[in-house]
Design a protein around this nucleic acid. Sequence first.
DNA 1: CTTATCATGTAAGCAGTTACATGATTCC
DNA 2: GGAATCATGTAACTGCTTACATGATAAG
Lengths: 188, 188
Amino acid sequence: MALEHALLVALREQPASGLDLAKRFGRSIGFFWHATHQQIYRVLARMDADGWVEVTEVAQTGRPDKKVYAVTAAGERVLADWLAEPTPMEPLRSELAVKLRGASYGDRQAVLDVVRANLADHHARLAHYEQLEKRDHGQPETLTGHDLDTYLVLRGGIRLERFWVEWLTEYLHAHRSRPARSPKDQER
Amino acid sequence: MALEHALLVALREQPASGLDLAKRFGRSIGFFWHATHQQIYRVLARMDADGWVEVTEVAQTGRPDKKVYAVTAAGERVLADWLAEPTPMEPLRSELAVKLRGASYGDRQAVLDVVRANLADHHARLAHYEQLEKRDHGQPETLTGHDLDTYLVLRGGIRLERFWVEWLTEYLHAHRSRPARSPKDQER
DNA sequence: CTTATCATGTAAGCAGTTACATGATTCC
DNA sequence: GGAATCATGTAACTGCTTACATGATAAG
């Protein structure tokens, strides 16, 4: 379970409310982690009870109050300890990969359409990430500390999207080279 | 939820018992899906109740009986329908990525050690997959149908491990080029 | 006047992990 | 005699998702 620790990292970058965090998890941190606001609220409440974070209620004009969370000294210790722990290799769990493998047990063309749709999504994301790279990280050679880490995680996002684009392209290409005998033929 | 469908794919390849499936999920299918035997037993029981699979009790000499599951006609239909459904882009959830991003909030050297350990694991897996490719798929140009799909999913496993190796190598290299001022310095 | 955004939460349920249990057999 | 493998399962728990609820303001 690492949502706690992902939240600690996010809050050390910048104290924030639950909804702020949910939004950030849809952006930069979201390259490799995702969480809904409900889950974030629950975990935040637990972390507060455990003394890892502290809350400041902030009144806003024309908007509901918000609870801004910040990491406590105890939370900093928890995070530092976790960072030094070994992380076991996590197995990827991909529904699309199961479909690629099982394509011959259904309508092949329909699966290829699903693959094409996913390929388009990954292309779009890759373009978006590459734009972020150009916009936010002008001269990466000069970066150090946390700024360097942020950049390198974005690099990971880019590399991951390239992995998807290349793999799905290979899949489509391999099946284009070996079409069904007749266009409307069902495989068997 | 796709474990059901992953099991349907596995059982269409070859009818099997719960433990057989658990073992297979540690191998080829395991490139992109993983499940423990307890989870498999539970899902298998539900699929049996739903009429997606049927059980044959097989007596064995010197071993406990086993229940061999096979996909029913209804199960085949469920699988075919699912294969044609669009699959939303799934966000990757990586604990290691969180550590990369948060490294400056702990002992940087300890995190680099964690990264090195993971890099070694991914190197080993990559070598293993490449060996499988060489051993099981001599001339890939000749493959068609399900054999081609199996090969292409293995290709995905190889590409994914390369992604990890390249990304983690980039991370280590970037931090080797920008060392702490003094060897025992703590970052801040 | 409706929709979207800000902001926080409750409730119900499913998916998945971890620990434990059983009972026989084969290997060392 | 002890450990490992084959084979199936129960029980307890955690993590996470989905649906729903509230109540205000800003934008179209």
